[in-house]
């Protein structure tokens, strides 16, 4: 009932797997299709039953993430948005870092009615760069401006490339520019290198459509 955008199409995933891993993927998929509440059971074993590592043909996507998002996609097809969200919260709560990251990726492909911003905020409180990066993906449009700006700043702090921040060009605004400039001054005062991404964010702030809007609001 709820449609989740996969990280990679089914054929791409299948091609990355040998025959026995393909059979495992079919078994996991069938289990979750039959009973979506089995998602939490299927999730932990998904990587060791299929595979892990970069997914050939899809830049920057891990096979284990693609497989887990596929399982969420299958479970979601028979769950309404609220039930799906409840299931994802449960899987995230008891997931290891890999499982948590996969939940964040699944949220990135979720429709309007699904709001998992509480999970993004949890991920942004960690210092695990893989979770921080995943939290700033497409689903981060659910974050309010303050949380989103803090998320961008956290990326600069923890070394997560801001290229992984969705809608940076659109959402960057004067307030973010000021925060980043203060961060830059602090680094310079300490005689430390300023990450190259600082300029990327400042450039985005300078050219962002949010800029004039915000100025109007300020007036």
């Amino acid at each position: 009932m709820t449609e989740i955008e996969p990280l990679a199409d089914h054929d791409t995933i299948r091609h990355a797997l040998d025959a026995s891993a393909q059979a495992q993927l079919e078994a996991l998929t069938a289990e979750v299709a039959d009973d979506p509440s089995r998602l939490g059971r299927a999730f932990p074993a998904a990587a060791r039953r299929t595979g892990r590592g970069p997914l050939p043909g899809v830049d920057g996507v891990l096979l284990e993430d693609a497989v887990r998002v596929r399982l969420v996609q299958v479970a979601a097809s028979s769950l309404d948005p609220d039930a799906l969200l409840a299931e994802l919260r449960e899987v995230y709560r008891y997931g290891d870092s890999d499982e948590k990251r996969a939940v964040l990726h699944a949220l990135s492909g979720a429709p309007e009615e699904v709001d998992g911003s509480d999970l993004l905020l949890d991920a942004l409180r960690t210092n695990d760069t893989r979770l921080v990066a995943a939290a700033m993906g497409p689903h981060s449009d659910r974050l309010d401006d303050d949380s989103w700006r803090q998320g961008v700043l956290k990326c600069l702090f923890t070394g997560v490339p801001v290229a992984s921040v969705t809608a940076l060009a659109r959402r960057a605004d004067r307030e973010l520019a000021e925060m980043v400039q203060r961060y830059q001054r602090e680094r310079e005062a300490a005689g430390r290198d300023v990450p190259l991404d600082v300029q990327v964010v400042l450039d985005a702030c300078a050219t962002s459509p949010e800029q004039p809007q915000h100025e109007q609001k300020d007036l």
């Binding site: 990355a16 891993a21 495992q24 074993a45 060791r48 595979g51 892990r52 590592g53 891990l62 096979l63």
Partner: peptide, 14 residues
């Protein structure tokens, strides 16, 4: 490296 995902490590038993 395997954990970070630089090589594909296939599942064994289970």
């Amino acid at each position: 490296a395997t954990f970070e995902g630089n090589s594909i490590l296939r599942g064994s038993r289970d």
